[in-house]
C-alpha cells in the first residue's frame, strides 16, 4: 500500500487531485480523506450524486402509500362513527400519510446512507486518525492486469 499523502493546505490538496485525475485516475482508484467536505473535489472528478436519493424517494412513497392504506384499513376493519364524520375521513388521513412520508423517507434515507457509505465500518479509521486533521490522498493498489 502506498503511503498517504498528507496536505494541510487546501489548494495543494486540490492541485494534487487534479494531477491524479489528469494522470488518468478515477475517483474510485484513489483513497481521498477530508476533514470536511470540499466541493471542488466533486467538480474535479465529476462525481455522480449517489444512491441515497432512491432510498429517500422509495421511503417517501412507502410512507405515503403505506400510511394511507394502513389508516384506511383501521377504520374499515372496525367502523366507528365519531362526530358524524365519514368513516374514511380524508383530511386527517392525508395528514397521517404526510407525516409517515416524512418519517419513512427520512429513516430510509438514513438507512440508505449507512448502507451505501458502508457504515459502521472501521477499516480506515485508525489510519486516518494517525494523521490528524488534514487532507489525505493515496492511490489504491492497481489491479493486476
Amino acid at each position: 500500500m502506498e503511503p498517504m499523502q498528507v496536505f494541510h493546505d487546501r489548494e495543494e490538496f486540490l492541485a494534487r487531485l487534479r494531477e491524479l485525475r489528469d494522470a488518468g485516475h478515477g475517483w474510485r482508484d484513489l483513497d481521498i480523506h477530508m476533514p470536511f467536505h470540499v466541493h471542488e473535489v466533486d467538480e474535479i472528478f465529476a462525481l455522480p450524486p449517489g444512491g441515497v436519493r432512491f432510498f429517500a424517494l422509495g421511503g417517501g412513497v412507502l410512507g405515503f402509500a403505506g400510511g394511507l392504506a394502513f389508516v384506511c384499513y383501521t377504520v374499515l376493519s372496525w367502523p366507528l362513527i365519531t362526530g358524524g364524520k365519514p368513516i374514511v375521513s380524508v383530511p386527517p388521513f392525508l395528514l397521517i400519510a404526510y407525516l409517515l412520508t416524512i418519517l419513512c423517507g427520512s429513516l430510509c434515507a438514513f438507512g440508505g446512507f449507512l448502507l451505501l457509505a458502508r457504515r459502521p465500518g472501521f477499516g480506515e479509521a485508525s489510519d486516518v486518525d494517525a494523521h490528524g486533521d488534514c487532507f489525505m490522498v493515496r492511490v489504491r493498489e492497481e489491479k493486476k492486469r
Binding site: 483513497d31 467536505h37 446512507f113 457509505a117 457504515r119 486516518v128
Partner: peptide, 29 residues
C-alpha cells in the same frame, strides 16, 4: 466515541453520500 462515530473516516465516498443524506434530511425536516 469511536463506536458512535461508526468508523467515520471522511473518505470521498462517505462524504458523497453524507452530503446527500444531510440534504434530504434537511429537506424532510
Amino acid at each position: 466515541y469511536g463506536w458512535l462515530s461508526l468508523g467515520w473516516s471522511g473518505s470521498l465516498d462517505e462524504w458523497r453520500h453524507y452530503n446527500r443524506v444531510y440534504l434530504f434530511l434537511a429537506a424532510f425536516a
